[in-house]
Each structure stands twice: as C-alpha cells, then as structure tokens.
Design a protein around this nucleic acid. Sequence first.
DNA 1: CATACGTGGCC
DNA 2: TGGCCAAGTAT
Length: 354
Amino acid sequence: MDASSDTGCDAVGHDLLAWYDAHARVLPWRSPPHTPAPEPYRVWLSEVMLQQTTVAAVKDYFAKFIARWPTVDALAAAADEEVMAAWAGLGYYARARNLLACARAVAARGGRFPDTEEELRALPGLGAYTAAAVAAIAFGRRAVVVDANVERVVARLFAIEEALPGARGTIREKADGITPEARSGDFAQAMMDLGATVCTSRAPRCLLCPLSAHCAARAMGAPERFPVKAPKKAKPARKGQAFWIERGDAVWLVRRPGKGMLGGMRALPDDGWSARADGSGEGPLAGPWESAGKVTHTFTHFGLDLHLSVYLGADWTRLPPGGGEWWPLDRLDEAGLPTLFAKAASLALAGTGD
DNA sequence: CATACGTGGCC
DNA sequence: TGGCCAAGTAT
C-alpha cells in the first residue's frame, strides 16, 4: 500500500469524525454532533452569509436576521429595502438579492426547502458548495462539500501539485473519495473546522491534526506549500467623487441600480467611478461644493480613492435629477449604507461638526 | 474558463 | 502597510 491508499478513505473519515465529536466548534447555526439537525432555514441562511465571509463577521448578522425574520416565510414577506439595509456592511450584496428571491421561491412552495442537492442547486444564490452543504447538514444527504477549507485540507492530504483554480476538479474527486456515506454533514463541518482551526493557511498546527498520519504534505515536511495557487492579477487604482448634499436636517441619498457594484444599496450620489474607469468629476448639481477630504477603500478587484465634496444648506427646489430621498441625519445608521459610503458619511459629519 | 463582486482581520 | 485570505455564485 502506498501513502495515499493507506489513508483508505474510511480511515480519514473515521479519524476526522472522532476529532469532530470532541472538538466541534459551537456556533449559533449549528447543532452539536449526534443531535438533531438545525432547521433548514437556519442552515441555509448561515451558509449564504458565510460565503467568502468569516464566522466572526457573520455572527451578529445571523442573530439580527433570525430575530427579525424567524422563518423563511417571514423573510419572504419582508420589503426589499429592509433586507438590503439589514445586509449592509456584510458585502457581496448580490447575496442579499438572491436571499430574498430564494426565500420567496421557498415560500411559494409552502415554506419547505427541497431536500435534495439537485433541487437546492436550482434555487437563487445556491451554487455547488451551498447546495451540497445544505443537503448534507440540514437533510443528512451524502454530498461532496468543497469550500476553501476543504480545498486546502485535501490539497495537503494528497499533496496536489496542480495549481488552483485549475485543480478544482482533482480536489473534488479526492474529496468525494474520502466523504463517508453516513454523517456526511458532520464530515463536511469537521473538514471546515479543521481547516479553520488546525489546517490553517499559515502556520498549520500539524501536531494537533487528527489526519497528520494520512497527510502527504506533512510527510513531505511542506504543508504550507499547498494548495498551490495561480498568481493574482494586480488591482487597478481608481479615483472618484461622492457628493454630500445636506439640507440642514437631512442628506440626499440615492439607490444604486439593481445589478453591479453595490447593486440595490442606498448610496451617496457619485460621479460614475467604477472598476473600469475613474469618475467624471462631475457632481449632480452646480454646487457650491467644498472639499471634505478623501476616503480610501479596497474592493475585491480595484482600489478606490473617493474624494468627498460637500454642499451644505442645499436648496430643495433644486433636487438632483434621477431620484433619491432626503434622509434624516439622526437616522443615518438605519439607511443601510455600504461601508464605502458609511466611511464617507462619517467624514462629512466630522467635517460639518454634526 | 475568466471575471465581477465587499469587507475586515491578520502579519 | 499592502497583500493575502475567508463556509462562493452568476455570467
């Protein structure tokens, strides 16, 4: 037997589940090992929030959503702008739009989530990972659950030299080979816990790892070399402007278009900056504008220097074109501004002494 | 298959 | 401090 066949698939599952029984993280959306599964609604909501997002960042949002919308039917009945505002700050806002679309699709079929991976995959916002995770965790189905943690653990277990993202197919096959028939939901969560707490990206704690005896990367003495990754593209640096138009007790807010950057979110008016180009420098009104400083913000695929121009004592007979609303300054935290514009608002309020 | 899409934490 | 990273999906 070679080093990989003696991992004998079953041995990995057995060792990992034994470790999980003793070391499973306690999380608000999770049931402990050997207890009934959480409600599918909670599993689904947490999995969507956790897409590309850390556990620490999700916790408060999960609690807020569950308190405000305890069931999928309640969420389905919510107003779009309420949900978008509640999601503000969590990022990847297409998730919030798909969350509502999915909740309404589930409500339309009686408030019950489908219980197969294939049907779950057809719902808005559920890709290969989330459909597999919900099928396994909420419904006990055997499913191959592959997220970034699993990719890292598997790439190390089998010392996969092929670089991501090309190695996805190979990694999935290997993950399939070690996924047990029984307890596949626990297995998936165990892999993710292992990746998050032991088989970490930097400085993996191999001495604490229940799979170290099976690990090819460990045997090579080079666990941190895996997974191999393709080099990243440089982020362009963009410049743009945002405009703070104040009427004494209120500021002019717009709603961004439903798709694209920060789609569907409330925002300050801007000069049309994007990932592809700088803004025009043109404001929505003639002014008079006063400079209030600059906000720097880094998005996934570009960096932005956002210059803020302020117009105090605006005349309400001269509303900017294109629609918007006067938003009370004392309720600005309820507007649901994405972080970039929340930073700009703080800058404006600091500068105006409000 | 490549790209667009947020944010905060870590070293 | 700037780059890397995190329970990915849609197109």
